[in-house]
Nucleic acid binder design. Structure first.
Lengths: 336, 336
DNA sequence: TCCAGCTATGTTAGCGCTAACATTCTAAGT
DNA sequence: ACTTAGAATGTTAGCGCTAACATAGCTGGA
């Protein structure tokens, strides 16, 4: 009876097998198993086959936690977005993953919920997992957050904006100019009474500033500004009818579509082209939905997916241009 | 000159400070620093204050990678979704984070892109980071994937469906019944020629099966089924006019809205209530958009956020009911 | 006075892996 | 035969932290 296989070799199914368990079973040293996993080319085919069989037999799953500690490389990136639900930032996260996953990086996702305190806590939580880079929407809201990032000495990519003094790299667009472009277009169309709908996050505020400045520069009255609850584009419908306004810039497409629903109810929406609309509406984000509704939504298109891909590229390749303006486009359809 | 502070105490700003660097500076042992971080109540207030000052002075950020290895607890969960962009799964991820982040858990996000091979690879990648649970949309597509999960001996929550033989826990709803409910409603409305639009993912397929079975059971002809490219709800518009169909169930709201755009172009959309529509349309997901468009979209509402919260609860609290049916509701508006 | 039972802190040994540096063996050149 | 380079494999010493088990100091009751 049990002559072969001394008890140390048997793995209880209750404890997950380790590198050295595989090594014992394959009759090699553990570093060889490690190499089969990470650098298969360095191991002789015959040995490799033996090790691979042992791994399969034991159902070995490498422990990257231990590997990360030993090698000081976690192959992970921290991603901080305000929110992921119903948001265009999901495109950016998708773009990131698409670029990063083939290189073996994992995404650790955190949401700040537009809350500065929470943002700092999430940043600290992310950094304690020692990601190899942080990619975030916008810039840290507090000096504490910024310091945390600077001290981490890893690539940091700020996105969806062009901060004046970035921490490290940037992949975004100029929110101020977007506001200017919309105001300019609406005014060229003959609109006189502009209004802005949006939240009060930094990027939305910058859009407002550009919008306002251009309106004033062209001699119009100060536009009205409606600051709304996030996550409730529907609520826009209720407050939709801005008396006297004949042109509205919504800080995102969801708000724009909500506002259009209000206009529809008030009988202020036409099936015709922009020139026929009593109230012009321009959104931002270029949601696919926008071109499917009627009248189709004019919008500032901003390439959320490219922002993610570019951010990933910036963290993978140090050196070169560290601040990339991905621009935006004014996409004109029937709403304004 | 430099009499005090032997060189070991000085931390080069280039190497991040460790627990023991803090301990040396505070004049305590490293375990005490560890306790200040994790169990502050166990340390005398005076000592704690001294340690906290040292941590601040050095800008200490705990290394959770090392902590995880030592304690065999990573405080992370692996989350696998088909896709995060433009998708209702983002709600589920949001729900998860909301519940998990207060407990100190981080979310490691992976996307399978509806690709079985990729799903297995992502599962293996997630597991190698030793998450304390895996939460996924649907069930593993392959036996390999299922085995990987079973061997991991951690909680696994399958969501967005009710698998017949779950690996561990479930938070979802019955996709088959959703299909049945839609068919029943459309038939009760007097519709005779049903059609289905959707992808061929497992959950969409189950919706189709229920839809088809109910139609046949009620004596109607086999409904038409259109399998479409994912991520292209707009393309639905082009193929929208299904000749002869007077009722359509779209596997998600994006498809439904795309299809309605096609109907509009074909002059087959009315502003009136469902009874006035030449072609009834029902979606699934209850996107906020759906109630903002005109005619407003009837839909199966499915609580993506609750699915996430429930999944988080199921992984945090072992024991108790492990299979939770969160149901769905048929929300009737003007489209069907 | 003595010791049980606290509370506050310390010591020791490893978690599972990899970097860095051996060592052994083979094949080819002189 | 005798290097010599290179390919394949092994040995050793940690990575930064925590579990588990001391130990020291103190209080209060018999």
């Amino acid at each position: 009876m049990n002559r072969e296989a001394p008890p140390e070799i048997r793995e209880s199914p209750e404890v997950p097998p380790t590198l050295s368990a595989v090594a014992r079973l394959a009759g090699v040293s553990s570093i060889t198993v490690s190499r089969v996993v990470r650098l298969p080319g360095q191991v002789a085919p015959q040995t490799r086959a033996r090790v691979e069989r042992a791994m399969r037999e034991l159902g070995y799953v490498p422990n990257l936690v231990a590997g990360s500690l030993a090698s000081a490389r976690t192959n992970s990136v921290g991603v901080l977005v305000p929110t992921i639900a119903n948001s265009i930032f999901a495109d950016t996260v998708q773009g990131l993953s698409d670029k990063l996953e083939p290189s073996g990086f994992s995404v650790i996702l955190a949401q700040s919920r537009y809350d500065d305190g929470r943002e700092d806590r999430m940043l600290a939580a992310l950094l304690s997992r020692r990601p190899e880079a942080i990619i975030m929407v916008g810039s840290p809201a507090t000096e504490d957050g910024a310091r945390l990032l600077r001290n981490a000495r890893i690539p940091v990519v700020e996105t969806w904006d062009l901060p004046a003094s970035p921490i490290d790299a940037v992949a975004g667009f100029d929110n101020f100019k977007a506001g200017v472009a919309v105001a300019r277009h609406l005014i060229a169309q003959g609109r006189k009474h502009l209004a802005f709908i949006g939240g009060d996050d930094p990027r939305g505020a910058r859009r407002w500033l550009g919008f306002r400045e251009e309106a004033l520069a062209q001699g119009l009255a100060e536009p009205r500004r409606l600051i709304l609850d996030r996550n409730a584009p529907g609520s826009v419908a209720a407050t939709a009818h801005l008396p006297g306004a004949d042109a509205v810039f919504a800080a995102n497409d969801a708000y724009a579509i909500g506002f259009m629903a209000g206009l529809r109810k008030a009988g202020l929406l036409r099936q015709g082209p922009a020139s026929a609309q009593p109230v012009a509406v321009i959104g931002l984000g270029n949601l696919e939905m926008g071109q499917l509704i009627s009248p189709s939504l004019s919008t500032i298109s901003v390439h959320g997916h490219s922002i993610g891909r570019t951010a990933a590229t910036l963290m993978l390749e140090r050196g070169g241009e560290r601040c990339i303006d991905l621009g935006f486009e004014l996409v004109l359809r029937d709403s304004g």
